[in-house]
Design a binder for these strands. Structure first.
Length: 603
RNA sequence: GGCCCCGUGGUGUAGCGGUUUAACAUACUGGCCUGUCAAGCCAGAGAUCGCCGGUUCAAAUCCGGUCGGGGUCGCCA
């Protein structure tokens, strides 16, 4: 037996007991006589005292010990002498009086501090020595949190009658969507498996198979460029159910998430019930389909007032069917000229042509019908009448000291830039409660999305999404107007989950493939297995797929996805620890009938 | 593919044309030290400033390129 108890579990109830512990030397304090060792294991840290009175051999070992050496120590638990209790430590009331120390392993000096997390270490170095990084409490705790959440999900869904079913990692490439990772087949030269971008078709086939309630903690692979919240392989909670409607799925997810937060992360605040907003509403009020609802700042449409002005920007925007909207920043008028310039620059960098700012200068006597031109500090005040400025303030619900920000331009870029500006102000002005997790459902997405570049309709969610019944007559006549049984879970400005009710009817599914412009051959090649299955009594079904990594990011206050993954890749898709991807032997390639074209690419 | 930021002892930073033999903290090595807990004190070792090229009498410092890391747009049904 290596140990009788774990370091973090020892407390004053164990005083006078003999214990054996094992772990890493977290810190050593050598006083020449007494030597203190902080010993760390996965449960915590406990102080060990090496007293020279307990023997010279023991003391000699204590002098040799260094950080991160692995040792086994047996001794007696004793209360610390008066005045030496450390209230900062969970085990600070007691210590281990060492009687025997065995060195289990030595360690070279680590390339970075394991016992000090105040210093931020270069992430490349952390990844190269990930096994040491994982020893540090931050990573260690993130992985523990991850386990707890996944276990909770498994228990919760199992209790509700869900079956966890594994689906293949080696499947078939179904182009469209993201780029596939490919795996060459040895037995069929020139043919490839693809790693699944998600188990989408498989879980629908499970529904046709009569499973009714399926889930999987599923790894998904997409060969696309990375971001702070994207990895080439990420984990989804994949869920699919039969004989249900949208409401059943939203209620299930809401209850699951509320329980995860309340039971595992009680220090987090949530909006309960989760607010629901339609896609249209979300775009109008926040300019995005993943609004950060931790703070207010909702958008206001100023186009009616703008249409009456002589300002050229407004006129041309209206002529070109653009939009003019903005929002009021409480107490924003006090922002310095420099800060406002920076906001303008930021907004332009996000695609806007400019930023209109109207500050209501602080004045105790302010009343909207009596606002004078001197109350307005604005880059457009000389182009508007006093009455127009008053109208804008009134519509923007602005009070003295507030700042109104307006962008005019094409709908898409205006929404995108204003939304980015809103998020930036939320952060800059600390408008969000840092412990708030503002979950919300966004529903009623359009079924199709017009692709300007390729002059055709794309599926907003995916091609299997079912249109709402009342819109099914419009599929062929007005595809853009069709609303889908499709929904997202968002939180703090992140998309956390996406799902839909699927088409279980072959005819309806075929109609949609038609609008998407697939030929019969393409349908057969990519979706043949699913389309055929629909012919054999496919039940009504639907599902959702919440991202596990992004949820963990929010739960652990991480600002990047790599911090909740044990062995992630860099932004260029490299694993610095294994140095993957790497070359393979000629024999391996030969077996796969693959030859490498080593001609250097031009440019 | 575009744009932005970063690269200096093991780690984290300072230095931003000559005052530098590149500074500071910490880690590391050795010594002293019996109640510390980021222990303390003393001494020591450790960097050709990511790489290549250019400008200059002189480059860590300025310029160009390149490599690597991060962020972001495109992309991610």
């Amino acid at each position: 037996m290596f140990r009788s108890i774990e370091c973090g579990e020892i407390n004053s109830q164990h005083i006078d007991q003999s214990v054996t512990i094992a772990g890493w030397v977290h810190r050593r304090r050598d006083h020449g006589g007494l030597i203190f060792i902080d010993l760390r294991d996965s449960k915590g840290i406990v102080q060990v005292v090496i007293n020279p009175e307990n023997g010279t051999d023991l003391h000699n070992i204590g002098e040799k010990l260094r950080n991160e050496w692995v040792v086994q120590i047996s001794g007696t638990v004793q209360s610390r002498p008066a005045g030496t209790i450390n209230p900062e430590m969970i085990t600070g009331e007691i210590e281990i009086d060492a009687k025997n120390i065995t060195i289990l392993n030595q360690s070279e000096t680590p390339p970075f501090y394991i016992n000090d997390e105040k210093i931020e270490i270069d992430e490349l170095l952390r990844l190269k020595y990930r096994y040491l990084d994982i020893r540090r409490p931050k990573m260690n705790n993130a992985l523990k949190a991850r386990h707890k959440v996944v276990k909770f999900i498994r228990d919760y869904l199992s209790d509700q009658g869900f079956l966890e079913i594994e689906t293949p990692i080696l499947i078939k490439s179904t182009p469209e969507g993201a780029r596939d990772y490919l795996v060459p087949s040895r037995l069929y030269p020139g043919n490839f498996y693809a790693l699944p971008q998600s188990p989408q078709q498989l879980k629908q086939l499970l529904m046709v198979g009569g499973i009714e309630k399926y889930f999987q903690i599923a790894r998904c692979f997409r060969d696309e460029d990375l971001r702070a919240d994207r990895q080439p392989e990420h984990t989804q909670l994949d869920i699919e159910m039969s004989f249900i409607d949208q409401e059943d799925i939203l209620n299930l997810i809401e209850d699951l998430y509320v329980n995860i937060i309340e039971q595992l992360f009680p220090n987090k605040n949530i909006l309960n019930p989760f607010p629901r907003l339609t896609y249209k509403e979300s775009m109008l009020k926040y300019g995005t389909d993943k609004p950060d609802l931790r703070f207010d700042l909702t958008f206001i449409d100023f186009s009616d007032i703008a249409s009456k002005t002589d300002l050229l920007v407004f006129k041309s925007t209206i002529e070109q069917n653009g939009i003019i909207k903005g929002f009021t920043v409480p107490n924003g008028a006090s922002l310095s000229r420099k800060k406002i310039d920076a906001l303008t620059k930021f907004t332009i960098s996000k695609g806007a042509k400019g930023l209109i700012t109207i500050g209501l200068i602080d004045d105790d006597t302010i009343k909207f019908d009596k606002l004078e031109i001197s109350n307005f500090k604005s880059n457009i005040s000389k182009f508007l009448t006093l009455e127009q400025l008053r109208d804008i303030s009134r519509k923007g619900n602005a009070k003295k000291g507030d700042l109104i920000l307006i962008v005019a331009g094409p709908e898409k870029t205006t929404n995108a830039s204003l939304s980015a500006l809103r998020n930036k102000l939320g952060e800059d002005l600390s408008l969000a409660d840092p412990n708030m997790l503002a979950f919300a459902f966004v529903v009623d997405f359009p079924l199709f999305d017009y692709n300007e570049d390729e002059k055709r309709w794309d599926a907003t969610h995916h091609p299997f999404t079912m249109p709402k019944e009342e819109f099914q007559g419009l599929i062929e006549t007005d595809p853009g107007a069709v609303i889908a049984n499709c929904y997202d879970l968002v939180c703090n400005g992140e998309e956390l989950a996406s799902g839909s009710i699927r088409n279980h009817d072959f005819e309806l599914q075929s109609k949609i493939f038609n609008i998407l412009g697939y030929t019969d051959e393409q349908i057969d090649l990519r979706f043949g297995q699913l389309v055929n299955a629909l012919k054999y009594g496919a039940p009504p079904h639907g599902g959702i797929a919440p991202g596990i990594d992004r949820l963990l990011m929010l739960l652990t206050d991480s600002n990047n996805i790599r911090d909740v993954i044990a062995f992630p890749k860099t932004q260029n898709g490299i694993d610095p620890l294994f140095e993957s991807p790497g070359p393979v032997d000629y024999e391996q390639l030969n077996e796969l009938n693959i030859s490498i074209n080593t001609t250097k690419e031009e440019s």
